[in-house]
Design a binder for these strands. Sequence first.
RNA 1: GCCCAGUUGGCGCAGCGGUAGCGCGCUCCCUUGACAUGGGAGAGGUCAUAGGUUCAAAUCCUAUACUGGGCACCA
Length: 903
Amino acid sequence: MLEKAYDPSPVEAKWVKAWDAAKLFKSAPAAKRKSYTIVIPPPNVTGALHLGHALNNALQDVLIRWRRLHGDETCWVPGTDHGGIATQNVMEKQLKKDGKTRHDLGRERFLEKMQEWTKDCKNTILGQLRRLGCALDWDREAFTMDEVRAKSVFESFKRLWAKGLIYRGERMVNWCVRCGTALSDIEVEHEERKGHLWHIHYPATDAHRDIVVATTRPETMLGDTAVAVHPDDERYKGLIGAMLKLPLTDYEIPVIADDQVDKDFGTGAVKVTPAHDPNDYEIMLRHPTIGSRKVIGFHGELLPEAGKNYAGLSREKAREKVVADLKASGLLEKVDDHRHAVGVCYRCGSVIEPLLSWQWFVKQIELAKAPLAALEAKKFVIHPESWAKPYRDWLVNIKDWCISRQIWWGHRIPVWYCLDCNDISNKEIHQLPDLVCVVSLSKPEACPKCGGKKGNFSQDPDVLDTWFSSALWPMSVFGWPDKTGDLDYYYPTSILVTGYEILYLWVARMQMMGLEFMGKVPFTDALIHGIVRDKSGKKMSKSLGNVIDPLEMMDKYGTDALRFALLIQARPGKDIPFSEESLTGARNFANKLWNSTRFVLMNLPESPSKPYEAPNDGHCCRELVDDWILAEYKVAIRHAEAAMSAHDPAGALAVLYEFLWDTFCAWYVELAKNRLQGPEGESKEAARAILVHVLNGTLKLLHPFMPFITEELYAALKPYAGESARFLLDASVPTLDDVIVNDMDSPRQKMRTLSEVTIAIRTLRSQLNVPPDLKISVIASGGQDREVGLLKEHQDYIKPLARIERITIDAKASRPPHSATAVAAGMSFFVPLEGVIDFAKERERLQKELVKAEDDVKKIASKVENKDFIARAPESEVALARSQHKAALERQSRLKETLAILS
RNA sequence: GCCCAGUUGGCGCAGCGGUAGCGCGCUCCCUUGACAUGGGAGAGGUCAUAGGUUCAAAUCCUAUACUGGGCACCA
């Protein structure tokens, strides 16, 4: 016998172990079966999993289990990502605690430590995924930096290089001075911040007049090489070509004209700092004579070129000093408040410094063509569709991808520099132009240029952007570049499930790489989900202290409850406001499921002689409520299937929740009690058969969402349901064809009428404070043949639910004195309540009912009395409205009648 | 600045052309042999605003206002 309340922990532990031991989630290419494949978005090895991971993986698990129960050969590939900068930062923070930097350890020792950390972290993460119940094929575990993946990375680099799609060049890059590396454009986040607009006088050398420029970064003026104005700007026409004295320096800079200058912003004159601003760099390319001067270094420090007063200062200190010095020399016109977007590092939040440096890039325009075509041809579909446009726009406006990172943790760039041709001893690689190089995994034999001495090479010290290896993930996990059977069978994968925050960073790049190297999309669909936020919609973060730990929630409420709470709220593409309260409802549902099964089991023989047959229309002793629940069950299946097809697991779950709780438990189980408590016989057996089969099917449908509890209950119900599968996942879900119901409509209509009557009498009881243990008698009066007949036949349904002792059905019965009245289904139900009833109260109650009824009549009458409605609305609508009108009138007149008697 | 999404009871969300639904919260009643992690009943919404289409609009269209997001940024 099951416990009274569901206790998740032992159940979860048991099944995690059993699934694992049975290798339940193992997949192998199966020629005859359709493959359904998902590659996990590999979590970074930066620590433990958070709620976002829980949601992401729960969603994938739902899809995988759902498809498997539908007969597909499902394969879900687990793995982790080395996580480049993010992971290196974690380690550097740890070192910092001991007052050390990575340079104290040296590259080799540092990487050893990283490997150790990674090993631990991987175990933690994979263990958590197991606990979440994820149906991952554990034998396929991959890591973005393991041997197989390293081969994929090298091969793709080599091929792109051979095609001229990878190049090394000097560009204005986004430099994070804290992380000490270049970043790609999408790794920069733009934050709106309060700032200032400093207005600075730049005197003309002839001393006749000066120009005032407006800037948000005064410290960069030390590197100005020009002031630009719009060619049509009348204010500055005479000054174009004139020279200005650059304050605080000895430099003289020209006034130039450039179309890009906005006359209406600031003073209409822009200081031009080509070395530290992407736009100014562009201006320099159009006006090469102005040249550029670098005044800020890679550590965010002011360089000697900035002048001896400033050299060595940080960017922040330099700003303060420049402003102070300008003020002192009277050149600061004014300071305005100014809100503007500041680029910050997506990993550490430091302000990005645009700097010129030599980096490796992937040409994107060519590579973006195939993904755009795939999108156009619907070979790749994004759900929800609203993300397709931003995705396309990004690909259309794509810029080259900077792939080199000046960190240690990652795939080392497979490029070697000939030490005979290049002098690379003095500076860092990213500051050296035009190097002679060879692309090779290991040290090359000879230099293609000088034929140089054997082995006199040095490898590029930098590593590849972590997203470079991630981009290959759907291929590399199946062994690419080797031609493997797995790749043949599983690629393209079925669907990618991820958050919208990495749509460009990752999804777009996988499409590019997949199409480039495989000629096919890496996945045909992408399911984009939202971010898990706190109750008030804020992002969860350690600094805000609003983080909810999924493990803690799993301990407290159970894994299935956590999954349920996340999944039911995971409306397509929408963020999820999450709080601990979300979990109580989920836990309660699990308990409801548990207890409904407990109830069914309690009412079955201890050991079944044989399993119950699946219900069908020829079944003996079927009655109305049986036909009804099967019809409802079928509708639920249809709706759940439709929602899943529409990539809306939350919708499917809502359907199943409602069916189990509000339909199956609230009505069917309650009504089955009649028969279950009665004598053994065919009617009882019929009820048992239906309870078992509908519940069993519902468990299966719910299994993808709540795998543990359903597995446990399925096991308990198995002997009665005639199930032979060892695990629920090896069974199959009920399909629409399995549920045979000839007449869907009539049982549902009949039950609607009966429940209407039940509710009306319950309401009466409640409003008149009739004690629950007081059984009442009811006299049903009036009504059409259909309703009266139905009531006669099925009064046993109503009696226990409304706690009625006796129902007298007499079309002509009149209201006995001392009785209250309920009106439903075109009938009046008189409830004699001598001594209990308060007539004033009853009048008041009926008056309220009447107001409502009159309201109803009015609303519907406005339709029925509308000639245009009758003439233009579909016939079925008109007929429906007419019958509604009739029913409303009937109700109204019955209430009026009763009130008349009472007053 | 451009684009997208949202605006429905106190809160969080469904519904997306035919008389407004769910969960939580709230009020009242109930420990009745599955479940108080439960049951029953109830209060609470002119579905952001203004126009339009339609016999009929929360639902379609157009504006507006807020909110959130994406992209691009003018120093």
